[in-house]
Design a protein around this nucleic acid. Structure first.
Length: 425
RNA sequence: GUGAGCGUAGCUCAGCUGGUAGAGCAUCAGAUUGUGGCUCUGAGGGUCGCGGGUUCGAGCCCCGUCGCUCACCCCA
């Protein structure tokens, strides 16, 4: 093997693209149902866009970004997530003018230089949505409902965990209390947690190391420190979820990995996934737009991973199949092959999928090919047919065969919208 | 970045205590003259990840390296 795809990247081969298409289509459909509109931003941004929003002390910015300098000396970064680019675009094009709520969705590749693992690639794919311009807890609930609906439609089981990480008023008080607590138990913490205790104490809470979990079992909870506004918001979100029949589990230790979150934080976990069990997650980020230099604008959003969705789907045994070929044309000599190519194009122009042999293969192998490709009909053309001005049509499911004029065969496909499928009696 | 396991035909794998490679599936071709799916027969296809070392001799042992997988970390 001469070359192979870069570590942590994967080719999506024809065999697997049907499921990608199916899920992409479903996501689009659900997004449109919820009245979100698609936004597509460039795959790379100025590095500052991410550093500024995600936070200097996050792992993403600290060690996982694909950052490079272009020939003009500008530092650029392959997007590790989409919220920052969406907000950048929102401000750049003044999408907020008019004061309305912008409901935007996206899907596409993201890049993070981590050690690859089950459900974690260096180039991975996410879909997500951002609701910008409303501080209403109803938006939080809608975003969660939207994310949940995709899983529901795919019949993927999940556990929804929610928490509130407070805002700029109450979080500092909590951070203080937490740090005090951590200082007291610091000798029981792992080195990494002890370091993080100073830089980003909240993150210590989602450590999965048993010692840390044990040491922080009695740690103060953010929920007990919420200011009135945050508490009311949190209760309202919970009430909305209940009203929408979406069961959620309050998880006081749930913390998001990105610094910009305020108030609501949530995560969808899959019981089928293993160590990387997060299907998706998100939360509210009321300060981010302002942070980017815009007017103070509240927003909520979520992101979910395609690859993890597929793992969950596989565990469920779901299968997707690609499009089937309608007609395979078999030519037995050169003039017939010429006719096949022409007829294939005629059918395609009618909206009927068709293909023919390009390797001068025998009738037998062409028939085999037609069968393998799942063709509904095989059209056989040889010197006999040409002399009589007809073709031999074989229905591959019944095995029945008859000769007819080409125009008659074509007529089977007319009158159907798109004509993608042959008529069946 | 850390740890563990693995790396043999397109795919899934076998290969006994080191003696220069096998199966199944897939592919291709046949099984009387122009016909698929089932069955049968046959064929093609491998620098045993790569580079060193030990040895008379290595796919099997040792070292390094790259990659994959899983876990940690973190997250989608």
């Amino acid at each position: 093997m001469t070359y192979q795809s870069v570590k942590g990247t994967k080719d999506i081969l024809p065999e697997e693209s049907p499921r990608w298409q199916a899920v992409e289509n479903l996501v689009r459909e659900v997004m449109e149902l919820f009245a979100y509109r698609e936004i597509r931003t460039p795959i790379f941004e100025e590095t500052a866009v991410f550093v500024r929003s995600i936070g200097e002390d996050t792992d993403i910015v600290g060690k996982e970004m694909y950052t490079f300098t272009d020939k003009g000396g500008t530092s650029l970064t392959l997007r590790p997530e989409m919220t920052a680019p969406v907000i950048r675009a929102y401000l750049q094009h003044s999408l907020g003018t008019g004061g309305g709520v912008q409901k935007l969705y996206y899907m596409g590749p993201m890049f993070r230089q981590e050690r690859p693992q089950a459900g974690r690639l260096r180039q991975f794919h996410q879909y997500g949505a951002e609701c910008i311009g409303s501080s209403s807890p109803a938006c939080d609930a809608e975003i969660i409902a939207l994310a949940a609906h995709v899983y529901d439609r795919l019949d993927i089981p999940y556990v929804l965990k929610i928490n509130s990480v407070g805002n700029e008023r109450c979080r500092p008080r909590y951070r203080e209390a937490l740090r005090d607590f951590l200082t007291r138990v610091s000798e029981r913490l792992t080195g990494e947690s002890r370091r993080r205790m100073h830089t980003n104490p909240l993150r210590v809470l989602d450590s999965k190391v048993p010692e840390d979990i044990e040491a922080t079992a009695e740690a103060p909870r953010m929920l007990d420190y919420l200011c009135d506004e945050c508490r009311e918001h949190f209760e309202a979100v919970r009430s909305h979820l209940e009203n929408l029949d979406i069961p959620a589990r309050v998880e006081p230790r749930l913390v998001r990995g990105l610094d910009y979150y305020t108030k609501t934080a949530f995560e969808f976990a899959s019981p089928d996934l293993g160590a990387q069990d997060a299907l998706g997650g998100g939360g509210r980020y009321d300060r981010l737009v302002e942070e980017f230099g815009g007017d103070s604008t509240p927003a909520v959003g979520f992101a979910a991973g395609f690859e993890r969705l597929f793992i969950a789907l596989e565990r469920r045994g779901s299968r997707f199949s690609g499009h089937r070929l309608s007609v395979y044309l078999v030519g037995l000599d050169e003039p017939s092959r010429r006719l096949c190519l022409r007829e294939a194009l005629t059918l395609r122009r009618m909206g009927v999928s068709a293909d023919c042999d390009f390797q001068q293969r025998s009738l037998k192998s062409q028939m085999r090919e037609a069968n393998k490709r799942g063709a509904a009909y095989t059209v056989i053309i040889g010197s006999e047919e040409r002399e009589r001005g007809v073709v031999t049509v074989k229905d591959m499911t019944t095995g029945m065969q008859e000769t007819m004029e080409l125009s008659l065969f074509r007529a089977r496909f007319t009158g159907e919208d798109g004509g993608a499928k042959p008529r069946r009696d």
